[in-house]
Design a protein around this nucleic acid. Structure first.
Length: 301
DNA sequence: ATCATGACCTGTTAGC
DNA sequence: TGCTAACAGGTCATGA
């Protein structure tokens, strides 16, 4: 479920193995995911050192010491897993042979990482994506913002930037339902189907309400607008915090970077009781823009 | 411009 | 049990 909090969790999970490490080998096991992989991707990354891993909305940004950036999007089903090298491997500098048996179906891209500065370890980072809705691209760091995938992204819903005023600016004049507006990455970048449902439930706002109705005629945020801004920030913050805790479990797991496990309040809870105090409604599923929306028609107005 | 829909691709699950 | 249909975190292209 790669929405922003999951991507942030993946970013943090990859940092220990990748930041400061050199990409000893990069293997593209097929020429394309959703789009063709850059033909020069292997050449531009092999031998480069990862100086940092960033994130913009649902995009991972791998910065290298060559002032290149690998841009990666997980799509619907993409995941990275970390397979630390065994002691034997790390003591044989010339032997970066990968154990082929460990590669599974839909393992499309392999990054062999070797730490610098005498640090122990090293790891294989493997990108797996059954549906191949994910994609990767490369950009020069100085023009990263101009990248077609990043150029039109809206406000990050983390931190304090997203408040009632900022939300009102973006929703003003919109005739589309709130659900669609919040999914629009050009307005707020990083929300997906799950967290839009959750934020609207928290704010007790109907996903069908016209987005523009959260803004007064003079462009000021209504109470509902303030409420929604808080709900979005809170739900994303809570999810990142919970993702972080699932990261600690990850060490004990099978090496896979598990997605944030969460019991949602609305998403995928059709027929269950709405959890709001004094509300006796039930969560209902409707379809908007061809996608499932879960909400409580009783208290979400 | 804004908005809704279909396309992309594979795996899982519900229902017959 | 085996088949079929519906559905799933995403974004992008196209049409009204």
């Amino acid at each position: 479920m790669p929405e922003l909090p999951e991507v942030e969790t993946v970013r943090r999970g990859l940092q220990p193995a990748m930041e400061g490490a050199t990409l000893e080998r990069v293997e593209l096991r097929r020429p394309d995911l959703r789009f063709p992989l850059p033909t020069d991707m292997e050449a531009r990354l092999t031998g480069a050192t990862i100086t940092g891993i960033g994130r913009r909305a649902k995009y991972l940004l791998f910065h290298t010491d060559r002032h290149d950036v690998l841009i990666a999007h997980l799509g619907m089903s993409g995941s990275f897993r970390v397979e630390p090298h065994g002691d034997k491997q790390s003591q044989l500098p010339g032997d970066f042979h990968h154990e082929r048996g460990k590669l599974a179906a839909h393992d499309h891209v392999l990054f062999v990482c070797r730490p610098n500065g005498g640090a122990a370890g090293g790891a294989d980072i493997i990108y797996n994506d059954p549906r191949r809705f994910g994609f990767m691209s490369m950009a020069r760091a100085d023009v990263l913002e101009d990248n077609p995938h990043l150029r039109h992204l809206g406000l990050e819903p983390t931190g304090n930037a997203l408040d009632g005023n900022a939300l009102a600016e973006r929703l003003q004049g919109r005739a589309s339902p709130l659900k669609a507006a919040l999914l629009d990455q050009r307005l707020i970048a990083g929300l997906g189907n799950i967290y839009v449902c959750e934020a609207l439930w928290r704010a007790q706002l109907s996903p069908r309400r016209k987005a523009g109705t959260l803004v007064t005629r003079t462009g000021k945020p209504t109470d509902r607008c303030h409420r929604l801004a808080v709900a979005i920030r809170d739900v994303i913050g809570d999810a990142i915090a919970a993702g972080g805790s699932s990261l600690r479990d990850y060490v004990h797991a099978d090496g896979s970077l598990g997605y944030f496990q969460h019991s949602f309040s609305a998403y995928d809870r059709e027929g269950e009781n709405c959890g709001h105090d004094a509300c006796h409604g039930r969560i209902t599923r409707i379809v908007q823009s061809g996608r499932s929306t879960f909400f409580c028609p009783t208290c979400q107005r």
